[in-house]
Design a protein around this nucleic acid. Structure first.
Ligand code: MN
Ligand code: MN
Ligand code: MN
Ligand code: MN
Lengths: 225, 225
DNA sequence: CCGGTTTATTAGCTTCAGCTAAAAATATTA
DNA sequence: TAATATTTTTAGCTGAAGCTAATAAACCGG
């Protein structure tokens, strides 16, 4: 289905709530606490907003049980994520932004840009399917490529894997970027140390790297045949 | 003087008030009514905002006498105008926007983009001195090229003039753009008819055009030696 | 299944930016 | 100058979106 912009445009706060719920809703309903932490907002404010989102038909919410997006809410979240990722792509590839600053700029612009801007930008960028950290960009119709990647920390020794995406909310990006550990890179897992979770990988050139689990949990990979 | 971004970022409403005051302050203080009309806001709301702007040190305001920008207010207005014009330039030259839609998009984005975005965009665009309608783009340090252009409607018969800028808030842009009546074009005034203010001009190719005063008042020109 | 801990909700308050209606000041015109 | 018209301000209200403090529900370990 195609998702036109909502009649009355939604506020940035509302948009950020919807995105937060979408992001943490892998598994069923999302708790007040979780949203409160993601958005750095008091729990009481979240409760308050959830009631309103429910009235607007963007969320299904039951007192003390958490919230989930309705179809309409999901569509709006994906619209924003599309904007966000296209904007990040533009900032990195054309304005020379560093990884550090990209995310926060996109976090604001995603709410301000029109549909027309978004689609013209997509055109300008050549309709990319993924943003520069590898995250898939939702299509205009709200379709999102299924993502079967898993954290590098879960890959067993001996596996050959390709980097699919890297976490986008971190200062870690700089570190990974400098080493060329970006989407598309192929790695072979040499060792996973039980003791401390340190994982050692080898790249195509025979170079080896070791990562602690905080890093390894934020690098997502897929198996290479 | 260099104008750094203000410590606490100002709201979009505040920004639009400052721009409105700057725009109508050719001649001394600006009235409540004028601001109210420019922003399509009730006069009472303007009074209210002027009091707050005064407290913030952005405006000098005297009850019943109107308002004027302080140095700080002026700097902020020009910062926004710089953003606005750079954004319009980008939309037209790189995203293929039509004249129609450019202004309203810029009107929103000007409040959301960061200093970093603005300066990187300026770089991307090659540091243009004027936006596509010919309006000068304020420099980072708040300097604005003096503008000694005057409306085509004020040019006497026989004058040779060059289009400097055209009004930017109008559906008229389409019309002018289609005819190539854009900044840089040189015209000779053939006739100014007292009766109805219709002005007839000839372009370099010998082509002639006649404009009523609503158009002629929005095309700004400078004399050609 | 009881008592404490954690999580969530309610109540009440704040700031921003708007609105309408009534009152006051200023400006215009006869 | 006095009456009228216009402009501006004041008073009081509204809705977002946040906050803190107090209370209630849910969960968990013994
Ligand atoms: Mn991001
Ligand atoms: Mn955001
Ligand atoms: Mn404009
Ligand atoms: Mn604006």
């Amino acid at each position: 289905m195609i998702n036109p912009a909502p009649a009355r445009p939604l506020s940035s706060s509302i948009g950020d709530y919807l995105k937060a719920i979408w992001t943490s809703s892998e598994t069923g309903a999302v708790s007040t606490k979780e949203i409160s932490q993601t958005l750095s907002v008091a729990p009481a404010s979240v409760t308050n907003m959830l009631v309103r989102l429910q009235e607007m038909g963007l969320v299904r919410y039951e007192r003390y049980r958490g919230a989930a997006l309705t179809e309409e809410g999901r569509a709006e979240a994906l619209r924003l994520i599309r904007r966000h990722r296209l904007i990040e792509t533009f900032l990195l590839e054309h304005l020379g932004y560093s990884w550090q600053h990209v995310h926060e700029e996109a976090e604001r612009l995603e709410h301000t840009v029109s549909d027309e801007f978004t689609e013209r930008l997509a055109e300008f960028l050549g309709h990319p399917g993924h943003d520069p950290h590898g995250a898939p960009i939702p299509a205009v119709d709200g379709t999102l490529e299924p993502d079967d990647s898993f954290p590098l920390s879960d890959a067993g020794a001996g596996r050959r894997v390709r980097i699919y995406k890297v976490g986008d909310d971190d200062s870690m990006l700089e570190y990974l970027g400098e080493r060329g550990l970006v989407p598309g890179r192929t790695l072979t897992v040499k060792e996973v140390r039980e003791l401390d979770g340190v994982i050692t990988v080898e790249d195509e050139g025979g170079e080896t790297y070791s990562f602690g689990s905080p890093v390894a949990r934020r690098v997502f990979v897929r198996p290479v045949p």
